[in-house]
Design a protein around this nucleic acid. Sequence first.
DNA 1: TCCGATCTATTTTTT
DNA 2: ATAGATCGGA
Length: 763
Amino acid sequence: MPKFGFIVRDFLKDLNNDQLKAVDVTEGPVMVIAGAGSGKTRVLTYRIANLLQKGVDPFNILSLTFTNKAAKEMKERVMQLVGDHEGRNVWMGTFHSVFAKILRIEGKHLGYPSNFSIYDSDDSKKLIRSIISEKSLDTKVYPYSYVANRISMAKSSLVSPEAYAANAEIITADESARKPEIKNIYNTYSNRLRRADAMDFDDLLFNTYLLFSKFAEVLLKYQRKFKYIMVDEYQDTNHAQYLILKKLAANTENICVVGDDAQSIYGFRGANITNMLNFKHDYPDYKLFKLEQNYRSTKNIVEAANHIISYNKDQIKKKVWTNNDKGSLLGFIHASSDNEEGNLVANSVFELKMNNQLPNSDFAVLYRTNAQSRSMEEGFRKLNIPYKIYGGTSFYNRKEIKDLLAYFRLAINHNDEDSLQRSINTPARGIGKTTMEKITVAASEHDVNMWEVLNNLEKYGVNLNSGATTKITNFSTMIKSFAAEMKKKDAYELARHIAISSGILKMYREEDTPEGISRVENIEEALNGIKEFSEKGAEANEGDLEHQGTLEEFMQDVALLTNQDNEDEEDKDKVTLMTIHSAKGLEFPYVFVVGLEENLFPSIQSIATRSELEEERRLFYVAITRAEKHLTLSFAESRYRWGQFTITEPSRFLDEIDDSLIDRPKKTILRPDKGGDLFGNEAAVVLPKRNLKPVSSSGAGKSFEASDTGGLQTGMKVEHPKFGKGKVMVVEGNGPNKKATVFFNGVGQKSLLLRFAKLKIIG
DNA sequence: TCCGATCTATTTTTT
DNA sequence: ATAGATCGGA
């Protein structure tokens, strides 16, 4: 007998034909291609409700999303449909959080304890950085972010350090990039994580895959558990996620994936659209449903979005349409500077709000990079419009919070070397560089953990004076005492105890600067958050784990949380400021997409290849389709970037919107057909203009090869792709701000930032 | 060992 | 611009 028949049946009336089919076919593989705003989340939640109605046990349903926020929202909506009790027991979470949970239970098969640490990207970059320096490699040749990215890509493709070193293609690529050491860095990095009983984000996927491949009985257990699998944002899955899903679904093949190739925006991180294309090969008898009716936006907005995406070559054919009103034309803001852009956007919000009596929460400002939030903030602050910023440095990434959490982590997992190094001399307790050096070296030599060395100094031949030895013993005793309290005290009690007796709180209190005060406040806020966690007790929001409110449990949750995940009540009626990436899946009545400038959006890093540019365009598509009623695009003629004044050019994406859809002056005003000297300011740095004349795009880099200008000196002769040949008059500044004044024949004197200018040294 | 001055990387996006 | 790392001197 259907358990909640009347509720679901009632709602089924709200589904259109395509949605209904996607909800109805619960058995066998299903792929739903869902255009923006076509009710994708609705389909997923109703599917879950439908399954429950048919009598499927909630424990047998797994629903995977990309962000915690999406998971939370889905959970709420399911609970609305079927009631809290049933809804609560469905496994709904992000890939990372669900797999972390599995690994806490099953990690022992792979040699991991259940209390393994999770390193966030800051932690892993830090580790990679220290490995690079240990190996005395040139950080110019091996920038740690490059190396980290390379390793992360390998891991997301399930390439182990051994496989990496054995892969001729990869090795050749690294060698021709003159970075042959990456394979060794990767190997050391991997070992070091192991030694610390730690996993990075990629390991959560990689190890889950290993677990399921190597231990058939474990796989079987989870295959039996997850009889019905649903995946949101399938276009953003990477290779590892794809293979894990394939394994999990192999028995029942009850897998339903929902995605939109036009909204694939995580290719840079290893997401692979071909996972969508592979679906039909893996499950030849799959059912395909397309959701093409947009319920979210006006006709104008849908049309603009369709228009934009039609510039992309790679796409699955579909026609998104809407029955909604035509709506107003797209707004357009042309500012002279980033600051003015912030003011104009804020003014525009103010007007719309006043004229139409709208809440602040109806508005969102979306941008390409987090750094752009600053000028927006200033604009809103001037008009006293409340706003909230998502992204940027997350709360848990603040220094003081990391300092505190390091103690928590170390108390939970003594092998966590990152936390050990962070906490051992913060606050200063006289365990300095020399001492740590000795310990690090001993740990490496004996290939044991630093904690092990710390507690057996003599055994590992670490020679320290008695003072240092005492200090270390005291530290170790303190950590052990924290660990001993773990099961006795609740999370809040223990957290406060640690904050006080570690000296962290005292250290920041004594700073006595505005900054120090705010750090103390943040620590207090963190403690309050933990208090809430303790008090809430069994929220049991994920699956079947018993919840006792210990600090260890808190830390397991926190590792995968981002700042987007806890919204305060007082944040409800505020304008939302966020990157487009974090806006995916959200919608707002009024949306501003700002900073539509070449080299910013599309990003300068993504204009080299067609596929990268197409990803930027999809990102623009995502931005546009967040808007329900009204969309405004904005662009500034100049902008501070890296603390440097730069003249900018309107984004090519603006040209790709049909003039009839947008309310803006004629294009000729936007694109003066003059050189870069229009603004006549010689101090201004002109970003490389995009090719106005047809230039074979692939040949552009080859015909002009810029030199390394690190050793550029006065008197040298150089060539510039645009200004031609010239002589260096002055070299000034350092590092990224190093600039040269060059006299170009027939052009005159130019001041160039070497970081940007493509100069060839010719004599 | 500690402190201040100086240098350097960061800015593409996130779990 | 700005935070963090590094360096050099007390």
